[in-house]
């Protein structure tokens, strides 16, 4: 079970929403907290916050962090096979950024009192969720391009919204992440266009990859507003500022034309531009499949978790060795680098 520290004490992160706290003092603090959010101010780690706010943030940020780290795998598998030196460099840099984003996000979650050890343990024990999209396979090089455009595109739509959120450390991490994600979309689009404007075989590769990734990209925004239990609370406290369906629509409006204008198709017979609303109409993903993948029954859930567990186990001796060495040398380390930092 996840726990977090508050005033030096370890407190379990409740699996259910905490019982409503009551009393005039609580009401006053809550009013103050909500007024602060209404004024557009950020909440910082040491501020008072409703336990439900803390719980929702830990849930969301740790899931987001896990998604970045697990998300290194489907694309990372193509690093050894990248077809040019430039593509190889770009892909290493991109997957590296995902690790970097995971690192920033775990840290943002840690400011709420939960430790990275605990979050990683929960992931490896199969108790934590991460984005369903990373449980889909990447059978060809074109999948890297399709992910780069569609999945990263969807991620940016989502993250630009999260960067406006009320929790300071999360919003700050998002700001930097969005900046780096703009490189990801550029590289994805570049690789995508290279294939879409290439030989017939390359065009076929990218079309098939688009067919595979279109619905996962739509799933990235989470369940339909009809079924999203968290959304009303998240909106009230500005953890999110738009609903899943609003974001999904934004994504389709922006990205469907980018694919179509290259003469490719999207796997949705209902997709069409509606001049009256100025939006694209589209079919929702198969929600039955979505819930199955969330439950662990997606095509690659087991493979992804096995890869994470193996890396974790194979790295354990390294983490332990450095911790042991540091403990022995706690008072050493006079290499002259400390002087100026004391200014």
């Amino acid at each position: 079970m996840l726990t977090y520290r508050i005033h030096g004490q370890m407190v379990p992160v409740p699996e259910q929403a905490p019982p409503p706290q009551e009393g005039p003092e609580y009401e006053a603090r809550l009013a103050e907290f909500e007024a602060r959010i209404a004024r557009g101010e950020k909440i910082e780690p040491t501020d008072w916050m409703p336990e439900e706010y803390r719980r929702q943030l830990i849930r969301m940020i740790s899931q987001h962090a896990h998604s970045e780290v697990v998300g290194m795998l489907p694309e990372g598998r193509w690093i050894p096979h990248a077809p040019t030196l430039r593509r190889k460099l770009i892909l290493i840099a991109k997957v590296q950024d995902e690790g970097g984003h995971g690192q920033l996000l775990y840290r943002a979650a840690e400011t709420l009192g939960v430790t990275r050890e605990e979050m990683i343990e929960a992931l490896l024990a199969g108790k934590a969720k991460y984005s369903v999209v990373f449980n889909y396979p990447t059978p060809t090089w074109a999948d890297v391009a399709a992910i780069g455009l569609l999945i990263d595109g969807a991620a940016v739509v989502n993250q630009l919204m999260l960067a406006q959120g009320s929790y300071g450390p999360y919003a700050r991490a998002m700001k930097r992440i969005c900046y780096e994600e703009s490189f990801h979309i550029k590289q994805g689009y570049d690789a995508f266009v290279a294939l879409a404007t290439g030989t017939p075989a390359q065009r076929q590769m990218i079309q098939e990859a688009v067919n595979r990734w279109w619905y996962p990209a739509l799933m990235l925004f989470g369940p339909s507003d009809r079924d999203s239990v968290h959304t009303p609370t998240l909106l009230r406290w500005r953890i999110k500022t738009k609903t899943n369906d609003e974001l999904r629509q934004e994504f389709v409006d922006q990205y469907a034309p980018m694919v179509l204008r290259l003469g490719l198709t999207l796997p949705d017979p209902n997709l069409r531009y509606d001049p009256e609303t100025g939006h694209w109409r589209f079919s929702e993903p198969d929600w039955e499949e979505f819930w199955q993948v969330i439950k662990g029954n997606g095509p690659c859930n087991a493979e992804r978790m096995a890869a994470r567990r193996r890396a974790h186990e194979e790295g354990r001796w390294v983490r332990e060795a450095l911790a042991a060495k540091a403990a022995r040398q706690a008072n050493g380390g006079g290499d002259g680098r400390y002087a100026m930092a004391s200014l």
């Binding site: 840290r107 840690e110 430790t115 990275r116 050890e117 990683i120 343990e121 974790h312 354990r316 983490r319 332990e320 450095l322 911790a323």
Partner: peptide, 9 residues
Amino acid sequence: MGDTQWPVY
């Protein structure tokens, strides 16, 4: 020894 992610700097 429990797992460690090392201290924070």
